[in-house]
Design a protein around this nucleic acid. Structure first.
Lengths: 319, 319
DNA sequence: GTAGGGTGTGAAACGCGTTCCAGGTCAACT
DNA sequence: AGTTGACCTGGAACGCGTTTCACACCCTAC
């Protein structure tokens, strides 16, 4: 494989000149440019990007940390990131963590070792202390409401969104309200929990641990949720479901079991994925793809910033 | 930032010795090893992976080309790839093409420029002539039934699978059978079309272009399909749907419209995703995740191989 | 006429870890 | 005593593109 020095020799010019031609720098005579281009042609030369990376100190790769890449929420976010990445000539390195801290650390290590220029953590597991340690090695951006100065963030106010949805259910006559969530820990989940606690306490509804159902990620988890409800002596009459997929699964399962929606069980989904529209599910719209794009821009630009995305309750037929 | 030469100086040893320590090579005295480790500690040294990549000529990155990363079929495949990648210390670079040839070419360029060691193309758009050109730069593996010697492949026999499913519908009394598919071109789609043509011709069922419905990828596309059927003077009584998501969407939509399944419309999905199980949809099981894992291994090992994955019809309630 | 600016070019340093090769030491074996 | 081999170490080349600096030429401007 020819390298840039071979080209220089072939074209009878210096390495610098070849580099200039390769990178379209000005100040190369037409004559030499042609000679270099011919040499490139003849030797079927191609840059070794690793040498470029080493030399330039950047790789045009951005890391993206997600717990599950096959979850619609995250794949939509990735889509938003990918769209902008393409425009800015960046490639994405996908790091799927399954919420394991060691995987997240690996991603941070990649940042430190300069394999990626910056890192987007769509859902964080490891502590902010650790994240902060790595912030000096490249831009880190998070998808959570976080005031840490070392990172940029794009987030939605999950507390407010949750509280709003709960209030809506209350206004519709529900007093036994539960919710389904992916994992129970994590900044976003804790904010939702706080909203829930504040809400039940404000309206004196009584906090019931059983009404919080975890591990709800996919459509098929809806079945599990319905089964849990059926086992309860006093099941909730309404559910906030933090993913439209799961909401759709619940609705589907209820139809099968002749549980009337919203009569016997009201549902509010989250995200406003197409499935919610199709199944006429009331939902809290989260601009996931747009968030992804914003995450990219923050990682790309590098100046520390905070961006709150607006959510909206979309009233449909499940409440 | 300290580099390996700084370390050598600090520890009073040669660069080679430092390298040996860094890479856990044998034949380093305990004394020097300690000195080096101390130097590493003191300088908070970290490898520049780009130098390693340049030197070693590989990056431990594998490219993964998919048309849509948010489609359940591909995200599951990615999951399968990612699982093995993790075991083998590889990271994945995701290239989402939207079936645009230029994006696929970019991925191939990355291979040529040594940014990735090998490339998995989950769904190909560009010609095999082009792919072949790049095969010399690293292992390329495809997810299609392809005899090209330059690449490895993992595939399912879509012709046989489709034919089998069609026959099953025929045996169940259907003579007006249509199918839904993502894109109409592509090796896999053409194989399915061939099966369809052969099937209708064998049983003299008449080939009806309208019975082939394209652009069916997501749950919500089910609605579009049902609408199309309702516009037909003589709609099919059975549909092969090349994605369980879409099949689920169709079933859901039919329930809404009181179209009896399988009475008025029989459905066979593909993939056997959890949603199919939950909604009791008859489907052709494709071991997608396993395929992903196999794709990884082929890319990793590099010896040209061909692996056919077995599919199985799972009889449920929609036929 | 000379100073200054634009244009064009090459040498050399820089980014940095890996690995081959030569050479040295010391104990074990013939 | 001499050879063999395991163990240990360092020098230097290698992978390769980028970029800075110095320099040279030519033309315009004062």
């Amino acid at each position: 494989m020819a390298n840039i020095r071979d080209l220089a020799r072939m074209a009878g010019v210096s390495v610098s000149t070849v580099s200039r031609v390769l990178n379209n720098h000005p100040y190369v005579s037409e004559e030499k440019r042609t000679a270099v281009l011919q040499a490139i042609e003849k030797s079927s030369y191609h840059k070794n990007i690793n040498a470029v990376n080493l030399s330039r100190g950047k790789t045009m790769l951005m890391g993206v940390v997600v717990p599950y890449s096959d979850h619609p929420y995250f794949s939509l976010m990735i889509k938003g990131i990918a769209k902008l990445a393409l425009d800015h000539n960046y490639k994405l390195v996908l790091i799927q963590t399954d919420y394991r801290e060691d995987r997240e650390l690996e991603a941070l290590e990649m940042l430190r070792e300069k394999q990626i220029d910056s890192l987007i953590i769509c859902s964080r597991t490891c502590s902010m202390d650790i994240v902060r340690e790595y912030a000096g090695y490249g831009h880190i951006v998070l998808c959570e409401n976080n005031n840490d100065e070392a990172v940029s963030v794009t987030y939605v106010n999950h507390y407010r969104a949750f509280y709003r949805a709960l209030t809506y259910l209350y206004q519709n006559g529900h007093v036994k309200i539960g919710y389904c969530i992916g994992r129970k820990t994590g900044v976003n989940s804790l904010q939702r929990q706080a909203a829930y606690r504040d809400f039940v306490s404000k309206y004196n509804l009584g906090f019931n641990e059983d009404y919080i159902i975890g591990d709800c990620l996919y459509f098929e988890d809806g079945e599990k949720v319905v089964n849990k409800l059926r086992e309860m002596a006093s099941p909730p009459t309404a559910l906030l479901v933090t993913s439209d997929q799961v909401a759709a699964g619940i609705v589907t399962c209820c139809q099968k079991l002749d549980i009337a929606i919203p009569g016997e069980l009201a549902i509010i989904g989250f995200d406003n994925q197409p499935i919610a529209k199709m199944m006429d599910i009331t939902t809290v719209k989260i601009p996931i793809e747009e968030m992804g794009s914003n995450l990219f821009l923050q990682a790309f630009n590098g100046d520390k910033s905070r961006k709150e995305m607006q959510v909206r309750l979309i009233e449909r037929g499940t409440v």
